[in-house]
Structure formats: structure tokens, C-alpha cells
């Protein structure tokens, strides 16, 4: 009901200075957050990890800038635009501003397209590091692609067999294990298969995840870049004892790896200990309370079982 107050058509010098200072501060905090974001992630143990972390840092930085920018507008209005008690007067009837509206449509559009273009480039790089290819026929060995042959340092293929609820790894020389050993700095060629339901091959330290689909063999390659022991987790819900379907990846110096593989070949096959099996047996012993589940598949017979309680880094 009040006449619109005449407003200055452009902000005052103090206002401009304040906005510039605010933006500079926001920029500094965003840069600090981008840098800090590396600390929220596990150690980098594959050639893919730095690329993923780089993208995450970039988006953390941009995201922080936008979030703080919007938040400061909200806080500013909360501090300075609150109606005093019993003040029933309406605010300025600003219905819009075409130039501003075009700006905040075009700017986000350009920004996300730039992020997308950059990500597509990174995707391309990552594909050369570890391409994925679904093979239709169950069990048939897919032909090596030219890139496989070009990479002379490729090790494999290692068969990765997922079950409810165990992991089994079969190396080219026939060694079987329930923890995955990989040689450092060599491209490992994996063939992922599932014997029952969907599983997912997920190693957080590698920043890699690939669903394993029953009925297909999925070719997968990755290059470990840091030695150590990391967790391998099933990331696609696979039924009753899904949470127990975890094991370790051990990345070793190639010489150590070869020695391990040779020693493993001399080990007899034993039934691997299996947490899901233990839990299920205990449940049956206690009167089979709880809701229905399929019983765990018989644990694989392997040369090398998972080292229990060995500390993992990520």
C-alpha cells in the first residue's frame, strides 16, 4: 500500500566494496574446501583415483561457492530484512528483473555444460585406464582388444566370482584365493561373473565400482598404483548376509606378487572361512529366528584364504 521507495539504480561504492570483499572471502573458503576435500576420501591406490578426486575437488569448490553465496543472501535478509513487530507494511513490490533472470538461467547452463564437457574428457581418460565391456555369452573368453595387446604390462585375466556371500579370485596359473592380490603398477585384467544375483565389485581406495550381472561376463581393467591392503566391498544389495560380503585387495610389488603366486600354487585347496556361513549356522542353532533368507552358497575351496584381522588402509 505504500508508494515504492525510489531506489538507487546502481549500488553505492560501499556496497560494491562489501560485495567484492564478500565474494573474495567466499572464493578463499571455496578454495580451502576444495583442498580439504581430498581428506574426505580414502587413499588413492589406482590410476583412476586422482582423476576422480580432482573432479570431486573441483565440484566441492564450485559447490561451496554457490552454497555460501546463496546462504549469505538468506542470512543477509534474515539480519536486515526482518519486519519489526506490528509492522504490517508490505515489502518493495519487485516482480522480477528480466536481465537478472536471463543471467541466472544462462550462467548455470554454461557452468554445468563446462563441468559436463570436462567430465566427458575425464571419462575418456578413465576408459583407457579401465574399459568395461559386457560379454553376452556366459563363460566364453572374449577376444583381446587391440588396446589389451598394446598394453604389454597387463596381468590377467583374473576371474572374479561373486556369490551369496563370498568372493573368489582365480589367477591365470589356476591359483584360487578369497582375497585379491594384484601386482603394483600393472594393468590388471578382470573378468567379473556372478553365480546368483547382482553384486558389485567396489574398492573405495581404487574409486572403482562395477556391478556384476548374472548371465554375463564383464571385462574390467584397473591399474593399482599404491601397495597396501584395501577393502573390497560388495556394493549392490545381494540379499540376507550382504553386509558380510567384503574381502581385501592386496597390492604388492610385482616381485613379491610373483613370489606370492608361486607359493600359493603350492598350497592345498581348503574351504575358505565364511562369515555369512558362520552367522547362518549360528542362526539355525539358535532356533532360526529372523526373516527368510536363502542359505549362503558353499564357501569356495581356495589356496589362499583372507587374512583375518589384517589391518586395511581404506
Amino acid at each position: 500500500m505504500t508508494p515504492t521507495l525510489p531506489r538507487p539504480s546502481r549500488p553505492s561504492a560501499t556496497g560494491l566494496l562489501l560485495i567484492t570483499a564478500g565474494l573474495a572471502l567466499n572464493l578463499l573458503i571455496s578454495l580451502a574446501m576444495a583442498r580439504a576435500s581430498h581428506g574426505w576420501l580414502p587413499v588413492q591406490a589406482s590410476s583412476a583415483a586422482p582423476h576422480v578426486d580432482g573432479l570431486f575437488a573441483l565440484e566441492t569448490g564450485i559447490g561451496t561457492f554457490i552454497f555460501l553465496g546463496c546462504l549469505s543472501v538468506v542470512i543477509w535478509t534474515l539480519l536486515f530484512n526482518r519486519a519489526p513487530r506490528y509492522d504490517l507494511v508490505d515489502g518493495d513490490p519487485i516482480e522480477g528483473n528480466t536481465r537478472l533472470e536471463i543471467t541466472w538461467t544462462v550462467l548455470p547452463f554454461v557452468l554445468v555444460m563446462l563441468i559436463a564437457a570436462h567430465t566427458i574428457r575425464v571419462n575418456h581418460t578413465l576408459a583407457t585406464l579401465g574399459g568395461k565391456e559386457r560379454v553376452a555369452e556366459n563363460g566364453a573368453a572374449p577376444a583381446l582388444t587391440s588396446s589389451d595387446r598394446a598394453a604389454g604390462t597387463t596381468f590377467g585375466p583374473i576371474e572374479v566370482i561373486a556369490r551369496q556371500w563370498s568372493w573368489e579370485f582365480v589367477y591365470p596359473n589356476g591359483v584360487r584365493s578369497t582375497e585379491l592380490h594384484l601386482p603394483l603398477e600393472r594393468r590388471a585384467d578382470l573378468r567379473l561373473t556372478s553365480m546368483d544375483v547382482l553384486h558389485s565389485f567396489y574398492v573405495p581406495a581404487f574409486r572403482l565400482k562395477q556391478d556384476i550381472v548374472p548371465g554375463s561376463v564383464i571385462r574390467y581393467a584397473l591399474t593399482p598404483t599404491r601397495d597396501g591392503r584395501y577393502r573390497l566391498r560388495d556394493a549392490m544389495f545381494s540379499g540376507g548376509y550382504f553386509a558380510t560380503n567384503q574381502t581385501d585387495v592386496v597390492v604388492q610389488d610385482p616381485d613379491d606378487f610373483d613370489a606370492w603366486l608361486a607359493a600359493a600354487a603350492r598350497q592345498p585347496l581348503v574351504e575358505a572361512p565364511n562369515l555369512a556361513m558362520d552367522l547362518h549356522r549360528r542362526r539355525l542353532a539358535e532356533g532360526d529366528h529372523g526373516w527368510a533368507t536363502v542359505p549362503p552358497a558353499p564357501p569356495p575351496r581356495v589356496n589362499v584364504t583372507t587374512a583375518v584381522d589384517a589391518p586395511h588402509e581404506a
Binding site: V73, T77, G96
Partner: peptide
């Protein structure tokens, strides 16, 4: 952004 623009110079309750 439109919501932020609505808050701007308003009389917030």
C-alpha cells in the same frame, strides 16, 4: 534464485 530474489528487501516474518 527466484526464492532468494523474493526474500531480498522483503519484510520477513
Amino acid at each position: 534464485f527466484a526464492w532468494l530474489g523474493t526474500l531480498w528487501r522483503g519484510k520477513l516474518r
